[in-house]
Design a protein around this nucleic acid. Structure first.
Lengths: 343, 343
DNA sequence: TCTAGTTACTGAAACGTTTAAGTAATAATT
DNA sequence: AATTATTACTTAAACGTTTCAGTAACTAGA
């Protein structure tokens, strides 16, 4: 299966290989006559020539490839996407990249693992890392000298671009909403609360709101586990076991909320009649459930788009603008919250 | 940002570049002494050398890259993954690939678009194409001479490997189940019914079951649209508008079912009390809903795994075994079906 | 008319690997 | 002791591009 190379095109067009390259890349410093251009393009067409991007990237240090690292949420398990948020984000990244002639090199990551092998390998033009934490495996990547975009990370380092949201404010928005609706005993249900992670920010936002409203935060109102459906089931069970001491919850991810919803119903607790939920993310799932979820909705598509654009801009040598990108949030009211009348 | 190359390692270890290459690739025909091996490995370690896979693949025609093409379900829209099935499948593919030292080159596809540009570019070791239809853009790819795995396609061509399920049998399984539960008027709700697609097979399976049971298929029991949540809402509305003439439905995708579920509830039709649903796929979503869905469940993880393995085996020159891979199905009983007592 | 500039190319090195073929030293066979 | 094998390497070509540094022909300026 002989592949057609630039030399074949050159021969057919009766020019040198470099001329073909110049024609194809419209290098602005070179001047090629219209007739030659046409002859080359005809040959390209006729032979069905597609440049080999491996060779191009080897020669030019420019690969049209963006690496995307998404955490493997359950180590050892097959499903990287136990949270649909990742799928939607990836989808937006892929779409934007493709619109701009880029492709994606996708890899799941475990935290203990070096990112280097994945990243150094192929002269990537940029790397998008989702939800990572500070650590050596991350800082190593700086050596590559390519733009790196951190999505949803609280890593403080000027060498990285970031795309995120104001998690603290968002959590506050959610909690305030419940308070406004008359709730006083509000649970906090989230994934694991780790330093420099999004959940700790959301926890802070929750505390902000509670404190400002003069409400106390009881130990037994705090639930923390994995960010997945199963944990939602577990949290619901715990809520029952602990004695149903809250009338509402702020839940930091829609997937968890869906699990909680299911768990509660199984135990005869109805949402929103008996229990109100405001959650976070705004994935598609949030509108699919019954009742649908009132949630702090992120612009997930915007997040992916921005991440790619930051890399494109950085590659195109534009000034490092928007180096930290904070996207807006809005609370979407749906059906999972009941207004509590004052007793 | 000087990258360290094989020559740097060679110099440091006091050997030639080819020796380093031989050490690293454990080429079986070459013999390298233990001492040299150690010296090279030490140098690699010390310099933090990682081979450039672009160069490797240029020289060796072997890239450790698998291309994955997933249909962009809604052209022009950002979400390639409007059906969570794709996310789960991709996830399994990624995991298996990574376990074997491969990475994924991901691209969404529109049907009218040539696959060539995406695929020829980078000396892929194999290509996995999800849910495609016969067409020139597909057959062109044969020229590349790399193994191609078609997932969920009814393309008859011995040059492709396939991984799929028996859609017809699965649909029959679903419909039979409803019939066994006493239903006689059973709707068929699916994505667009196209030649050589999965939906036409599922339609056939539905017909098989109905015919065998001596049940008639009414025009107004057939619903066809997109494979997404929104279409489910629409179908539910149509069901109401057409006069609620069925007691149950076989729905060909869980996402659609979720939409139908929601649409019905909004119109006061309860599942399973007033209407029963058996659907297809077995995505996570199916257990998350309320009521959870009785569904014909595929081994999605197995599908992804098999697809990757077929490529690995083909690359490793093993005999073309399992060239057509049909994975098992099973009906998972959950809460969306009610038994109809005979009247 | 001579020099300097411009236009439209070409030649060849370079990118970082792999791998076929070659070589020198030592070991085994006759 | 001479020949053949084996071991442990090295050399150099090749993979398919890009791009720097020419170069030849023509044009413009003095």
């Amino acid at each position: 299966m002989k592949r057609v190379s630039i030399k074949d095109v050159a021969k057919k067009a009766g020019v040198s290989a470099s001329t073909v390259s110049y024609v194809l890349n419209r290098t602005p410093t070179e001047t090629i006559s219209p007739e030659t251009t046409k002859r080359v393009m005809d040959a390209v067409e006729k032979l069905g020539y597609v440049p080999n991007l491996n060779a191009r990237s080897l020669a030019s240090k420019y690969s049209n490839l963006i690496g995307v690292l998404i955490p493997q949420t359950e180590p050892g398990k097959e499903f990287m996407f136990s949270n649909p948020f990742y799928g939607e984000l990836l989808s937006a990244i892929e779409y934007t990249a493709r619109q701009n002639g880029y492709h994606l090199l996708l890899s799941g990551t475990q935290e203990d693992q070096s990112y280097m092998g994945i990243a150094q390998n192929r002269d990537l033009d940029g790397i998008i890392i989702v939800g990572t934490y500070p650590g050596e495996n991350l800082y190593q990547l700086k050596r590559l000298g390519v733009p790196i975009v951190l999505v949803d990370s609280y890593v403080k380092d000027k060498d990285f671009y970031t795309v995120g949201i104001d998690d603290r404010k968002g959590a506050r928005l959610a909690t305030d909403y419940l308070i406004k609706k008359g709730h006083k005993k509000i649970a906090f249900i989230s994934g694991s609360i780790r330093e420099n992670g999004v959940n700790i920010k959301r926890w802070e936002g929750y505390c902000d709101a509670m404190k400002e409203a003069g409400l106390s935060i009881n130990e037994d109102a705090i639930y923390s586990g994995n960010v997945d459906y199963n944990y939602g089931l577990i949290a619901a069970k715990q809520y029952i076991d602990r004695g149903k001491n809250q009338t509402a919850a702020f839940i930091t991810a829609d997937v968890i909320s869906i699990g909680v919803l299911k768990g509660l119903i199984q135990h005869g607790v109805n949402v929103p009649e008996d229990f109100s939920i405001v959650s976070f993310d705004g994935v598609y799932l949030a509108r699919m459930s019954y009742p649908s979820l009132t949630t702090v909705s992120q612009d997930i598509a915007g997040k992916g788009k921005r991440a790619v654009q930051l890399i494109l801009d950085a590659t195109g040598n534009k000034e490092k603008s928007y180096t930290d990108c904070v996207l807006p949030l809005r609370l979407v009211e749906r059906d999972s919250v009941r207004e509590l009348r004052c007793e």
